[in-house]
Design a protein around this nucleic acid. Structure first.
Length: 505
DNA sequence: AGCACA
């Protein structure tokens, strides 16, 4: 294309410009730091930081060309290189004559988010650890400590990742992102790619409101330290709005997904993501058989529904007694979703304190026959079964809206009367109440305030945490169990699940 | 470490 010009992409010299291009900047470099660096040489009319996919480039525009020349000349002959936060910054004249303010990088809401998963080193984080970390603790993020964001990494440029390592982590992220983001609404498409700064992904929602909710809730969050090995650095999500409105996904693969198009060809690399330990003996199924150990407390269909909905739309649930033991069948639309749920939940307790420990195997069933909705069986497809089965969610656990049916998977009150009686707003409010920055909780929906507990609930030996849970249950967005979503200072209340066990200890 | 989102 530009071959005619014969110019190399980067020339050794640039003709002077009022605009200086800076690279190798520290992560999240600020305009103030750019100003600080440039102002000894003249009047700065504009700066632009966090430029480029890695956000480690910037521009400084001087009022006068001579000022830019002064800066370049100074550092060309200086013994001390230009530095920001101790990091050497490389300067040259920009190939542009002015900084244009394309509002794109600002905060123009878009339905597509650019997500950077920062600090993931494949060599440090085994696929298993990362996989478990992400799924068992899907949304158990820790908030940014104040001042933490400013000088995060140094890690940007430091490491080279082995190619196969990349791929493995990539798979995890690929599985992880839809699960996280589908908590906020239907994820239409995802495309991932790798950059020196880490993994990046474009996540497409139906509209910018949903995208904004997801951005507000997840931007700046880190994967908790205790899930990572000692030496692994911070692993953080940075989220910006993309200028894209519609991603062009040509096939389902380990790096791209289109959840809106079930007929898209599937790349072989995307199919076998399960059974990575090679120990699977039982044939996989979209239906999971759950048995519960140490069942001190009643486990209702609603509790199961809520727990299993975190990983995708639950079509049907049936519970029964077998050999004096409690068992349940949980049906997803596809094997992959069942897979994810199985790996994430196996061995976990529904209630803190080791109560109601889940054991999961694949059922031989593929479609449960639920004739009537009662406390033994539930069909959540709302007579929409044909539509559902035509849209396999692939890897993306997707909450599927079911018009007419009142399904609130984020309502954790383990009693059907409440689930049926309350109509909570769907995405925006739930997500807004999860804003870690403000630390503020959205008010309870009015209906919930007025809802009294059913008498049965008081008669049951509820674990104390479950009582707490009742008060904070509204913070959960649909599709994600509230135990996975701590609010600041509320760690002790994120229940239903035990605190995650540290790895390797 | 290389010009504004792959």
């Amino acid at each position: 294309m530009s071959a005619i010009s014969g110019q190399p992409q980067f020339r050794y010299t640039q003709p002077p410009s009022k605009v200086i291009h800076l690279r190798n900047l520290p992560w999240e470099c600020t305009d103030e730091e750019l100003l600080e660096l440039g102002k000894p040489f003249g009047t700065i009319v504009k700066t632009k930081c966090n430029v480029g996919a890695n956000r480690n480039q910037a521009f400084i525009e001087f009022a006068d060309l001579n000022q830019a020349i002064a800066m370049i000349s100074y550092y060309a002959s200086s013994a001390e290189p230009a530095q920001i936060r101790g990091k050497t910054v490389y300067l040259q004249y920009s190939n542009r004559q002015e900084i244009v303010n394309n509002k794109v990088t600002a905060d123009t809401a878009s339905n597509v988010l650019l997500v950077t998963v920062e600090g993931v080193e494949a060599g440090d984080v085994s696929i298993d650890v990362l996989h478990l970390a992400l799924f068992r603790n899907l949304l158990r993020w820790q908030p940014l400590a104040s001042g933490e964001s400013a000088c995060l990494p140094e890690t940007n440029s430091e490491f080279e990742r082995p190619k196969d390592g990349w791929k493995k982590v990539e798979e995890v992220i690929q599985m992880f992102l839809p699960a996280v983001f589908s908590a906020f609404g239907f994820v239409h498409k995802i495309a991932t790619f790798e950059k020196t700064a880490g993994f990046q992904a474009l996540v497409q929602f139906s509209d910018s409101e949903i995208a904004s909710s997801a951005k507000n809730a997840l931007d700046g969050r880190s994967i908790p330290r205790y899930l990572l090995q000692e030496h692994v650095g911070p692993c953080m999500l940075k989220i910006n709005f993309s200028a894209h409105t519609d991603l062009n996904v040509k096939f389902q693969s380990h790096r791209s997904r289109d959840y809106t198009n079930p007929y898209l060809p599937v790349a072989p690399s995307a199919i076998d993501i399960a059974g990575q330990d090679g120990t699977k003996q039982e044939p996989e199924s979209n239906v999971l058989l759950a048995s519960i150990e140490n069942m001190q407390y009643t486990v209702t269909i609603d509790v199961l529904h809520e727990v299993f909905s975190a990983f995708g739309f639950v079509q049907k649930i049936a519970i029964f007694e077998k050999n004096a033991g409690f068992q349940a069948l949980i049906q997803y639309s596809d094997i992959q979703t069942a897979n994810i749920a199985k790996q994430a939940l196996e061995g976990h307790c529904i209630y803190e304190g080791g109560f109601c420990k889940l054991h999961l195997t694949y059922s031989r069933h593929t479609d449960l026959n639920v004739k009537i909705n009662n406390d033994r069986g539930r069909d959540y497809t709302g007579g929409n079964i044909a539509t559902m089965s035509n849209q396999p969610s692939l890897l993306g656990p997707q909450p599927v809206p079911t018009p007419g049916a009142t399904i609130h998977s984020y309502n954790s009150i383990p009693y059907p009367a409440i689930c049926n009686g309350v109509s909570l707003p769907r995405v925006p409010q739930a997500a807004a109440s999860w804003d870690i920055r403000s630390g503020a909780m959205a008010p309870l929906p009015v209906q919930l305030h007025n809802q009294s507990l059913p008498p049965q609930l008081h008669n049951q030996p509820l674990p104390p945490h479950l009582h707490n849970q009742i008060h904070i249950q509204h913070v959960a967005p649909p599709g994600v169990a509230p135990h996975m979503m701590p609010l600041p200072g509320q760690r002790s209340q994120q229940l239903l699940f035990p605190p995650p066990q540290p790895y390797g200890r």
